[in-house]
Amino acid sequence: MASQGTKRSYEQMETDGERQNATEIRASVGKMIGGIGRFYIQMCTELKLSDYEGRLIQNSLTIERMVLSAFDERRNKYLEEHPSAGKDPKKTGGPIYRRVNGKWMRELILYDKEEIRRIWRQANNGDDATAGLTHMMIWHSNLNDATYQRTRALVRTGMDPRMCSLMQGSTLPRRSGAAGAAVKGVGTMVMELVRMIKRGINDRNFWRGENGRKTRIAYERMCNILKGKFQTAAQKAMMDQVRESRNPGNAEFEDLTFLARSALILRGSVAHKSCLPACVYGPAVASGYDFEREGYSLVGIDPFRLLQNSQVYSLIRPNENPAHKSQLVWMACHSAAFEDLRVLSFIKGTKVLPRGKLSTRGVQIASNENMETMESSTLELRSRYWAIRTRSGGNTNQQRASAGQISIQPTFSVQRNLPFDRTTIMAAFNGNTEGRTSDMRTEIIRMMESARPEDVSFQGRGVFELSDEKAASPIVPSFDMSNEGSYFFGDNAEEYDN
């Protein structure tokens, strides 16, 4: 783990906690998980779902989305002020799938948001429990990260689609708070800032007046979040320049895209947490497990152990491969979309394939898809080993990566060399080191050039047997250095459309 220093740990961010010791953190995270579980059980009762239907990941996603929508204050306010045809701002819903006479049927349900809020609060001892809501947002974000390569979004903001390893959390809503900021990748933060800068260039009043003052505060806050992700002084200094700019424009845009590229080699610290679907927490609570009393951590053995003992089902389209669908969801559960496939294969105990080789589309089923041909199958979400999630980018030494994705962002704290394609990355730096950030740029390029592919990161860190909950005997895996390590390699994943 990167030293926490003055930073709060993510469990504290996750639970809005002030400084807590490890036991208190485990208890408050457990409380959050228990609340999600209780809410899910109650919703299944309301909807009269069978046990099997309640364990269907598509039903879980609909129920999670309903509660997130019920608590989305800004959108609710907007919907009330701008009524649109056929949208009731006070209601929320989605597809629920039921097994009827041996076939899967889709039923569109509609609930009062007020009623959903009441059920959620009741499951969370009367609190709004925003930490639990954020947790579900991060699960949705991790699922998107594993399912889609955001080529269009990258290109629109002047970045290269091969930089997708920097895009963790790119679909997280803005209201996801400190826990959300911690899991956002460098590219995601750059993209958010670039969008602001572009608006400022096109709209003279963007930075002016009372609204402009708020915009400015948001801009500086985002700059500080991004600065905190960088691990070298030169990158941090460049972020200070971007933040202090009187009138952010093209120079800042250039600096930010430069920094994003540099992060492929001088990786930023991005938190990883295993956020599971509500249909995993519900049955665990129903079986009598007391998360608050037992304590829970999002970055240790607990999620692995929970998945070892969970039964989750998914709808499967006619030509999809259930094992591939399982891999997709497994990666999402562990926030591992940008991790090295060699490491993932070792931990999972079966070969993890790149996205383009998977015969599976996303987990969600569109409303126009034919239910007649839908089957369902068990998702295999178990693992051979477990490993500690990392909050750091690993040290800054790398190795060759593949054509589709030119770097990785480690999820697990496991000893290995970190793949990246130096030639491709360095070719993108057209040696432009003039301007006010020239000395920093020169320094950053120097550090990137001296990074050695064969150097090892996370020295001495290994994986653990599932029986080793105290992480007492690390097993340090050895990897084939020459092997392909990137998930979005030469990829044809669908595009994420909101």
Score class of each variant (00 low, 15 high):
Glu24Leu: 15
Phe412Ser: 13
Val312Met: 15
Ile225Gly: 14
Cys333Val: 12
Phe458Ala: 00
Arg38Glu: 09
Thr390Asp: 02
Arg106Val: 10
Asp497Glu: 11
Thr171Tyr: 14
Met191Trp: 05
Lys273Glu: 09
Met374Gly: 00
Pro318Ser: 07
Trp139His: 07
Thr23Trp: 13
Val352Gly: 01
Val414Cys: 12
Leu341Trp: 04
Asn397Pro: 08
Asn498Phe: 07
Ile301Met: 11
Pro477Val: 14
Val352Phe: 01
Asn59Cys: 01
Thr360Tyr: 06
Ala179Thr: 12
Val285Cys: 13
Arg461Asn: 05
Gly300His: 15
Lys48Val: 12
Thr130Ser: 12
Arg384Pro: 01
Gly435Phe: 13
Val299Gly: 09
Thr396Trp: 08
Gln231Lys: 10
Gly180Val: 06
Gly295Pro: 06
Lys184Ala: 05
Leu306His: 02
Lys103Glu: 13
Gly394Lys: 04
Val194His: 00
Met426Phe: 06
Val414His: 02
Met222Gln: 15
Thr424Tyr: 01
Glu220Ser: 05
Pro83Lys: 14
Glu495Asp: 14
Ser335Trp: 00
Pro161Cys: 07
Ala336His: 01
Asp455Thr: 13
Gly126Trp: 10
Ala146Trp: 10
Thr424Gln: 02
Ala472Ser: 07
Gly282Glu: 06
Gly209Ala: 09
Glu494Pro: 06
Gly185Ala: 09
Ala218His: 07
Arg156Lys: 09
Glu465His: 03
Ile217Glu: 00
Ala237Thr: 11
Thr188Phe: 06
Asn144Ile: 11
Ile425Ser: 10
Gly187Leu: 00
Leu266Gly: 08
Val363His: 04
Phe258Ala: 03
Asn144Val: 05
Ser478Glu: 01
Glu494Gly: 09
Thr6Cys: 06
Gly362Met: 09
Arg106Pro: 01
Glu449Val: 09
Gln149Val: 07
Gly394Cys: 07
Ala428Glu: 10
Gly431Asp: 03
Lys7Asn: 11
Arg74Ser: 10
Glu107Ser: 11
Ile25Phe: 08
Met136Pro: 00
Met447Ser: 08
Val29Arg: 01
His334Ile: 09
Gly180Asp: 11
Thr396Asn: 10
Ser9Cys: 08
Gly17Val: 13
Val352Cys: 15
Gln399His: 13
Ala401His: 10
Gly490Gln: 03
